[in-house]
């Protein structure tokens, strides 16, 4: 049964990489059920992330947000800060897609805080970029300018010409 769970997860990932998002979702749901059966929180967390990602490409952003929130909750339970940062980043982008800029800003700020805490300059740069765009969308150009400056500073520091 445990191996079956892993096989479902691998099938879900393979369909995802092939662009078969509905099939990927079906397999990841099976994987999720087995992870729950075993009380395997790490596998459950991975399934939520994979389900959130697949729903993005079906345009079901609201469903993705719910899965990413479950990822976030489990990452905190598992005390995995890198995964927590990733979940906040995904939620920030998903709420931008949903045009809910207030929530998007909130999650990008959380991502920024964790990236700073972890000394992750690449993550911090990405958070500043995303946050700046969310501020522009919400009409707060003053804060957007501060973020763009931060993004430029970090891009120069890490040698990211693009």
């Amino acid at each position: 049964r445990a191996a079956q769970g892993r096989a479902y997860g691998n099938l879900g990932n393979t369909h995802y990489l092939l662009g078969n998002f509905s099939e990927a979702i079906a397999f990841h749901k099976e994987r999720l059920a087995i992870a729950k059966e075993f009380g395997d929180k790490a596998a459950e967390r991975r399934a939520y992330s994979n389900l959130g990602n697949a729903h993005i490409f079906l345009g079901k952003f609201d469903v993705s947000a719910e899965y990413y929130k479950k990822t976030l909750q489990l990452s905190r339970q598992l005390k995995d800060q890198a995964v927590e940062a990733q979940a906040c980043y995904s939620l920030g982008n998903t709420y931008t897609l949903l045009r809910d800029y207030e929530r998007a800003i909130d999650f990008h700020l959380k991502h920024l805080c964790i990236a700073q805490e972890l000394g992750d300059r690449v993550g911090e740069g990405r958070a500043a970029w995303s946050l700046g765009n969310a501020y522009v969308s919400s009409g707060d150009h003053g804060k957007a300018l501060g973020c763009a400056r931060k993004h430029l500073e970090i891009s120069q520091e890490i040698g990211d010409k693009n």
């Binding site: 769970g5 892993r6 997860g9 691998n10 990932n13 995802y16 990489l17 596998a43 991975r46 399934a47 992330s49 994979n50 990602n53 993005i56 490409f57 345009g59 980043y89 995904s90 982008n93 931008t96 897609l97 990405r126 970029w129 995303s130 700046g132 765009n133 969308s137």
Partner: peptide, 26 residues
């Protein structure tokens, strides 16, 4: 899919490009 093609925000487009290849492995 039409909705996905017209995404205007650069940082979101970049995130989605990365996401296409992002899987949580077993």
């Amino acid at each position: 899919f039409q909705r996905l093609r017209i995404i205007q925000v650069d940082s979101v487009r970049r995130w989605m490009d990365d996401l296409k290849l992002m899987t949580e492995c077993e």
